[in-house]
Simulated scan of single mutants.
Amino acid sequence: MESYTEKILITGALGQIGTELTNRLVEIHGADNVVASGLDKWQEGISSAGHYERLDVTNTKLVRQVIKDYEITTVYHLASLLSGTSEKQPLFAWKLNLEPLIDFCEMAKEGLIKKIFWPSSIAVFGKGIPKENVGQEVVLNPTTVYGISKMAGEKWCEYYFDKYGVDVRSIRYPGLISWKTPAGGGTTDYAVEIFYKAIEDGKYTSFISEDTAMPMLYMDDAIEATLKLMDAPKESLTVRSSYNLGGMSFTPKQLAEEIRKEIPGFEISYEPDFRQAIADSWPASIDDSTAKNDWKLSYNFGISEMTQDMIKNLRIKLGKN
């Protein structure tokens, strides 16, 4: 393997994944080798990274300048509009979720950067596929703007690798659950909101119906999976679109039952909204055996461990312990 000092740029560094991924990359590579970027103005403590750039990722000229200024070798391109928000701004979502990815692939093709991470999503699945244990190679048939943009992005990743050898790597994230950073407009956000409401109010109204199962992943496992994929030798990777990630699968009703083990009086009610139709188009569970075979994907958290960890940490965060 070639040896070089990794200089990392993270777009969307202030988001749900970006905040925690930045912290881990700083631990591994040192703050000075990590550049965080987002739309917020710089302020003290905005990120754990050694450098912060206020950056609109659709401004290609500015992005290229940042890449050159910091001699960036690796980009974690996380900036995007999530599923619920994308449905409200479809044309903007298409532009934001796709065009910067292609720009980064062009930069890698030119030799300006060496490696790219880009997240896809279970939203790429859709009508006509089995609900359970969805395989790596199923036909993608998304019904949402977010899913369509992610499917297109996957094909661009594959294209740039096949045609130009661009080393772009991707994971189809399921719903992500974290106590550190609020969720940002996704269909699986109920699985984060429910914990806040359980601790603060003892009750929650779910916008997803009680028996709708969706794949979920605790953020700790998502970050470790991302780093493991990026560390894997190039020759061990057999998927250049995006790897399935399964995590765990549960319904709002099952999650409420786990929460009651920690907060016995917790009550849940159900008022499905427009996000229910999005959830209905997604799989209930995912087969991630290809990732396990190719780069030794593994998990530390199931629904019980995740629930206990969320409640313990959120109680401290919210001053309710």
Rank of each mutant, 00 (worst) to 15 (best):
F161H: 10
V124N: 01
K234V: 10
A191Y: 13
N244G: 00
S121K: 09
G319R: 03
P182D: 03
D288Q: 07
K109G: 10
A256D: 02
I122T: 04
S37G: 09
Q16R: 11
W179G: 01
K7P: 01
Y70W: 12
I116A: 04
K41T: 09
G165R: 09
L39C: 08
S170L: 06
T307A: 03
G128P: 05
V134I: 13
Q43T: 12
T205W: 03
N321H: 11
K317V: 01
G319A: 00
S48N: 09
L112V: 10
R260E: 04
K155C: 08
S48K: 07
T307D: 06
G185Y: 04
A152R: 04
G126V: 06
G135I: 03
F301W: 10
I263M: 07
A79S: 11
T290C: 11
Y196D: 15
G45R: 06
A225V: 04
K155Q: 14
G185Q: 08
Q89L: 13
G319M: 01
S3H: 15
I199S: 06
Y146K: 02
T60G: 13
S304A: 11
S236R: 07
D40E: 15
N293C: 12
S249E: 00
E99K: 10
F117S: 01
V34Y: 03
Y76M: 10
T144V: 09
V134K: 02
Y160F: 15
L98T: 14
R260H: 08
K292G: 02
I148S: 06
I8E: 08
V138E: 14
V124R: 05
E110S: 10
Q43E: 13
K61I: 10
E224Q: 13
R54C: 04
V63W: 06
P90T: 00
Q65H: 11
D201F: 15
N59A: 11
S241D: 13
E20H: 08
K7A: 02
I316L: 15
Y204A: 05
D221A: 08
A108M: 11
V35N: 00
E106V: 14
L9N: 03
N59D: 15
T74V: 14
A183W: 04
I259W: 03
V35L: 07
E235K: 10
I316K: 15
K115E: 12
A191V: 07
G126Y: 04
A198N: 03
T290M: 14
T205S: 13
S242A: 15
Y70K: 05
G202I: 08
I17H: 12
A279D: 00
L39Q: 11
K155F: 15
S206V: 10
S281M: 06
K261R: 12
E132R: 13
M310Q: 00
I67Y: 09
T188A: 05
I311C: 03
I171T: 00
E20F: 08
Y270R: 01
E235Q: 14
K109V: 09
L62K: 12
G202W: 01
M107Y: 15
L255S: 02
G147Q: 00
I102G: 08
A277C: 09
M219P: 02
D287K: 07
Y159W: 13
L91Y: 12
H77V: 07
H77N: 12
Q308G: 08
K115A: 04
I223V: 08
V134F: 05
S298Y: 11
S48M: 03
L62M: 11
G265W: 01
E71I: 08
A277R: 13
L217K: 03
Q136P: 05
A225F: 10
W94Y: 14
